[in-house]
Amino acid sequence: MNLQPKSQPEQAVAGTSNYSRAPRMAKEDRREQLLATALNAFADGGYHTTSMDDIAAAAGVSKPVLYQHFPGKRELYLALVEYTLVDLSAKLDHSLAASDVNRTRVESMIDTHFEFVEHQPQAHRLVFSADLLAFPEVADRLNNFYDSLAGIIASVLGPNVGIPHTQAAMLGRGLVQMVQTAAVYWAQHPESGSRQEAQEQVFRLAWGGISILDEDWQ
């Protein structure tokens, strides 16, 4: 699901606080609200210039409340990365499991990537930013995400085309990163065509390569 604040913070009584007080929430609801607020704050101001004070103020909570959920800005950012990748992984898993027709699986995977880039641009930039990949923890989480998805693709591709799992996983990872890169390029270059046109072109490239491996794979 998309990260969205659960409710708007209430205005503080003048002179009683320097932040707007948010209504009480269940622990998990508060955590989601803080993640959503952090996503917006990082997207607007950048990770390095956004402080925990900024996030607490935007969420309408005190810093102690924010620190109850996240011990620091780095941990908050990593939690946001994890949340986003788990959500995207679930959507991609669903797109691959929703059909027994391999052509449809590939089309659905491409559609899911483009959907994510188009409708969750803040989350995409935050997780896949080249600058923040300098954080070893972020690089590790992203690598695990790619490896997990490549393994799922390999479990279908390998048996169908008769190649070892390790080779199928290599091709699966290449396929995923190709689609991801193409989706980002499309989002940044509207002159490249409509989303449907872009997806069709990416599918033709991906499916054409897969078909070469085994012309009988349907």
Rank of each mutant, 00 (worst) to 15 (best):
A206G: 01
Q120E: 15
D216M: 09
H69F: 14
R103L: 09
H189Q: 14
Y19S: 06
L133K: 12
A57F: 01
A36R: 00
Q180R: 05
D111M: 04
F203E: 06
P190E: 07
G162R: 02
P71G: 14
D111Y: 06
N40W: 06
L3D: 02
R24N: 02
L3I: 02
M109A: 07
Q11F: 12
N144P: 02
Q167D: 12
Q218L: 09
A12R: 05
S89K: 08
Q33L: 13
Q4Y: 13
L85C: 05
A198Y: 00
V179L: 07
L157Q: 03
D54T: 08
G151H: 02
D87A: 15
N102D: 10
V117Q: 04
M178Y: 15
I212Y: 06
A79K: 04
L78V: 04
D53S: 14
E115V: 01
E200Y: 00
L80F: 03
L92W: 03
A98F: 07
Q167N: 11
A58P: 02
D214S: 13
L3W: 08
E200N: 11
S89N: 13
M25G: 08
V61F: 05
I153W: 06
Q199I: 09
Q196T: 14
L66Q: 04
V13I: 14
Q122D: 12
E10Q: 14
A79G: 09
A183K: 00
N143K: 11
G72M: 08
G15F: 05
E137T: 09
A198M: 07
L3H: 03
L213Y: 02
K63M: 05
R141H: 10
R125S: 13
P164C: 03
A97H: 09
L34N: 00
L88K: 01
G45Y: 01
L78T: 05
E107D: 10
F114Q: 05
P23D: 13
M178Q: 11
N18I: 05
A169I: 00
D44F: 12
D216E: 11
P136E: 10
D53H: 11
Y19V: 06
A12P: 04
S108C: 13
D216W: 02
Y19R: 10
P159N: 08
